[in-house]
């Protein structure tokens, strides 16, 4: 619809329209997904992320981009702030000092659970290094990174 209006009023050549139509049609061909499925995937993604962050829903954008031999999903989801809900979750991770349970927990849970035990020890640590550390333990399994 938007494309149609642009074609009517804008000076945009029809080959641009053809390119865009081609891109979209091949996308759904390659994914075997109908466009409405992509839309509901976007809404589901927003819903999940909204549990942890405040999301700028109006400016969310989920697209698929054709790369060498595959299609990549690019999600641009602006974060307005963190949900205060994280606080009540904080007490949960500390009673689990054993590293194995932490590493076996799903990735989404890990990302919110991990920073809590590390921040009290490395109080001066900034946000950036903390993020980096978070990735290491998932590969290294040991609780050592917390001591840093």
């Amino acid at each position: 619809m938007f494309d149609f209006i642009k074609k009517l009023f804008g000076p945009e050549p029809s080959s641009v329209t053809a390119r865009e139509r081609l891109r979209l049609v091949l996308l759904s061909d390659h994914l075997s997904l109908a466009p409405d499925v992509v839309e509901s995937l976007k809404l589901d993604l927003i819903e999940v992320i909204s549990r942890y962050c405040e999301v700028d829903i109006a400016n969310c954008d989920v697209t698929f981009e054709q790369q060498e031999k595959q299609v990549a999903m690019l999600a641009n989801i602006p974060i307005l702030g963190m949900r205060s809900r994280q606080a009540p979750r904080a007490p949960e991770p500390p009673p689990a000092p054993a590293p194995p349970p932490a590493s076996t927990s799903p990735a989404a849970a890990q990302s919110t659970a991990q920073p809590q035990p590390s921040s009290p020890k490395a109080g001066a640590g900034t946000g950036a290094p903390r993020r980096r550390r978070r990735r290491k333990p998932s590969g290294g399994v040991n609780p050592a990174p917390q001591a840093t």
Binding site: P13, S14, S15, V16, A18, L22, Q66
Partner: peptide, 16 residues
């Protein structure tokens, strides 16, 4: 037509 942007170019086709 390709020059005027009224037809997909060979590059457009082969980009796919």
């Amino acid at each position: 037509m390709v020059r005027k942007g009224k037809m997909l170019s060979v590059d457009d086709v082969n980009a796919i």
